[in-house]
């Protein structure tokens, strides 16, 4: 710095120019990649408002005219309207999400804060279920729910969540609860607070970030779930949106693209809204916990 002020620009200029070119190159690559990534989604969106005869033979994103016929045809394209499928999905997703948050947080509170015999034993077993593929419980669970008459009801998709069967969320919450200072609940306990009140009045209010993360991911996963509904829901009146879409593919085959794209687009809207409004929470959730989606 001190030797020669005039020499500095001469030395740094090529480097700066190189950095500029580098950054232009990186942006060009990223913009190109972004277009490639989004093109299929935009194509679906534009396909949903395209006049039906135009989809074939067009890879462009701009339809010649906008038509909402696809939405109208698609909405009542099956014997039961898509409104019913949306309602079913919404009921299942909301109740399952509440169940996951309540069930897992109560369990996590016991593991993180209460001192009872056998806690470490149960905790180890809980961690063990993290690695267990759902395939091994699938068939006996199905037989069980069949025998108690729950097939073709929403119950098999909802009730297990209240029993904290999703070990991943328990683990997530235990980690978070352990980060809350113990002095808080010890002081409350000295004041005669019951464990229930500590859970309800201290832990839950202090854990809103992790509860929100768990709630959002539960909702999205339940909304997108295809396997569970496929097995348990056979009556078209109980279909979720994912099953409805699948039937729509089967019944129209390749003939009604705009109707199919219109319903596909609609089915993505709830997840997309979460993406718009809770993006930071989603990304932080993944970055800090390694959630897989």
């Amino acid at each position: 710095m001190t030797s020669s002020a005039a020499a500095i620009p001469a030395i740094h200029q090529p480097a700066e120019r190189r950095a500029l070119w580098r950054s232009i190159l990186i942006h060009a690559l990223l913009i190109g990649a972004s277009i490639l990534m989004l093109y299929p989604l935009l194509w679906m969106l534009s396909g949903s408002v395209r006049p039906q005869d135009e989809i074939f033979g067009s890879s462009s994103l701009l339809p010649s005219s906008i038509s909402f016929d696809g939405f109208v045809r698609g909405w009542s394209g099956l014997q039961v309207s898509f409104g019913k499928f949306f309602l079913n999905s919404l009921i299942i997703a909301v109740l399952a999400t509440i169940g996951n948050v309540v069930g897992c947080s109560i369990t996590a509170f016991a593991f993180a804060r209460l001192d009872f015999r056998g806690r470490n034993f149960w905790f180890a077993l809980m961690l063990g279920t993290l690695m267990l593929p759902y395939h091994v419980t699938l068939i006996p669970q199905y037989i069980l729910f069949l025998q108690i008459g729950w097939v073709n009801t929403f119950l098999p998709l909802i009730v297990p969540k209240y029993l904290a069967t999703d070990a991943f969320f328990i683990f997530l919450m235990v980690q978070f609860f352990r980060g809350i200072p113990r002095e808080l609940d010890e002081a409350a306990m000295m004041d005669g607070c019951s464990p229930w009140r500590i859970y309800w009045k201290i832990m839950l209010p202090l854990s809103l970030p992790v509860l929100a993360t768990a709630a959002i991911f539960s909702f999205i996963w339940t909304w997108d779930d295809f396997f569970g509904p496929l097995i348990y829901l056979n009556d078209i009146n109980t279909y979720t949106i994912q099953l409805g879409l699948r039937s729509f593919v089967d019944s129209t085959g390749q003939s009604d693209w705009s109707g199919l794209f219109a319903m596909s687009t609609l089915s993505l809207i709830p997840v997309f809204l979460f993406f718009l409004f809770f993006q930071r929470l989603l990304i932080e959730g993944i970055a800090t916990t390694g959630l897989k989606r």
């Binding site: 069930g103 109560i106 369990t107 509170f109 016991a110 593991f111 209460l114 001192d115 009872f116 806690r119 149960w122 077993l125 809980m126 279920t129 267990l132 419980t137 669970q141 069980l144 297990p160 209240y162 029993l163 904290a164 069967t165 328990i170 019951s194 464990p195 229930w196 859970y199």
Partner: peptide, 19 residues
């Protein structure tokens, strides 16, 4: 804290009955 088992009850039922 025997109350721990009350809190653990839903998970225990799920673990034994569904897993």
């Amino acid at each position: 804290q025997p109350a721990g088992y009350l809190f653990l009850l839903p998970w225990l039922v799920g673990f034994l009955g569904l897993t």
